[in-house]
């Protein structure tokens, strides 16, 4: 169902996103362009950060530990997964496994941005940390190429939003009540849908999205959370032999 929605939502020429993602040649973008592209998403990410701060406290993760978690891990879905396992009384190992599986997608994602990140090893390691789904998606300049400045601007903005949101959630969370009542859990997939709409630049991208969604859907009942997303990345193999034509 959501797959058909994803396809329908993929209006080819979505003004906000496609214009924002208009393929300038690599190197013409500035860090501030990355900040600008991701600013509307940063608002949503800050709200998720607040939610995480609230849930972490309910899961018995202390205020300081929750802040360290957001600052060092910077990967929302994995942090939510770990917190929810702990809060359901799961073991330490189960919480770690759930989070690591959810983050496994950052292996192929990290490889995809590798050509854009150069410099000494510690700089590459540091810059790789600002990669999250949203900063990755907005820094895609087409044809599988990623712009370093867009990535850094977008990533740093989202990082600040995420950590500040977590701090606010930890401090004032008790005033908010149940995040599900506010519909925040539906905001997450909607955010990804909007990002996907900006990525559907040609037929191959639409096919990859449909296939990736289908793989994930089929696998949900059979494997632990996180694995369906990693498996779905195999859908990009339909691009084999197509030589990565510019978007």
């Amino acid at each position: 169902m959501a797959i058909r929605i994803a396809a329908a939502g993929g209006a080819r020429h979505h003004p906000t996103l496609v214009d924002a993602a208009a393929p300038l040649p690599a190197g013409r973008h500035r860090v501030v362009d990355g900040v600008r592209r991701v600013a509307p998403l940063a608002v949503a990410v800050a709200a998720f950060g607040v939610t995480f701060g609230v849930l972490a406290q309910k899961a018995g993760i202390g205020s300081f530990a929750a802040l360290v978690f957001s600052a060092a891990t910077f990967a929302g879905s994995a942090q939510f997964a770990a917190a929810s396992v702990l809060s359901a009384g799961g073991t330490t190992a189960a919480a770690i496994l759930a989070a690591v599986l959810l983050n496994a997608r950052y292996l192929p994602i990290g490889l995809s941005v590798a050509p854009a990140l150069h410099g000494p090893w510690w700089q590459r390691l540091l810059r790789a940390q600002v990669v999250v789904d949203e900063s990755w998606a907005v820094s895609h300049i087409g044809g599988g190429r990623y712009d370093r400045r867009l990535l850094l601007g977008a990533g740093a903005t989202l990082y600040c939003a995420w950590v500040a949101g977590t701090a606010a959630g930890v401090a004032f969370g008790s005033l908010l009540g149940d995040p599900a009542k506010l519909g925040l859990d539906a905001a997450f997939p909607a955010l990804f849908l909007a990002l996907l709409a900006g990525q559907l630049r040609d037929r191959r991208a639409v096919v990859a999205a449909l296939l990736g969604g289908a793989i994930a859907l089929v696998l949900i009942p059979f494997v632990p959370p996180g694995i369906p997303i990693v498996a779905a990345s195999a859908a990009c193999l339909i691009g084999l032999g197509s030589r990565g034509a510019a978007s």
Binding site: L196, I229, G239, G244, S247
Partner: peptide, 14 residues
Amino acid sequence: AGVVSLLAPAVLAA
């Protein structure tokens, strides 16, 4: 590169 260009739509859909 041809494969990597399709990684974003595949993972976002998932």
